[in-house]
Amino acid sequence: MATVRAPIWGTPIFDGAQAIKGYALNKMCYSFNDAVNRNEFLANEAAYCARFGLNPEQYAAIQNRNVLQLIAAGGNIYYLAKFAGILGLNVQDIGAQQTGMTVEAFKAKLLAAGV
């Protein structure tokens, strides 16, 4: 019998179902390891996304620069981090976006965890 675990609030688990769902999106983000591909994406986003076969949900999430939507569309945070890199966003920026906080408030929350 399959192991079923209670979901953990606010915590996506990238498993087989997500891997299937997000393959095209993650493959595109993986391509951003190469600077040539990053520049190609920036030159023509629509064409670059079409080449990787993103579905409408994935393409909208890319256009919206929205990390929670990208994850819901099957994105894996490690590959998405390379997309965030193109946008000049670090992990505090994307943390703030996902939690609905300002970047300053998000950083303060991290500092508070050590007190």
Binding site: W9, G10, L68, I71, Q98, T99, L110
Partner: peptide
């Protein structure tokens, strides 16, 4: 890093 619980320590 990911999800609404991002920043959890």
């Amino acid at each position: 890093l990911d999800g609404e619980r991002a920043g959890f320590i």
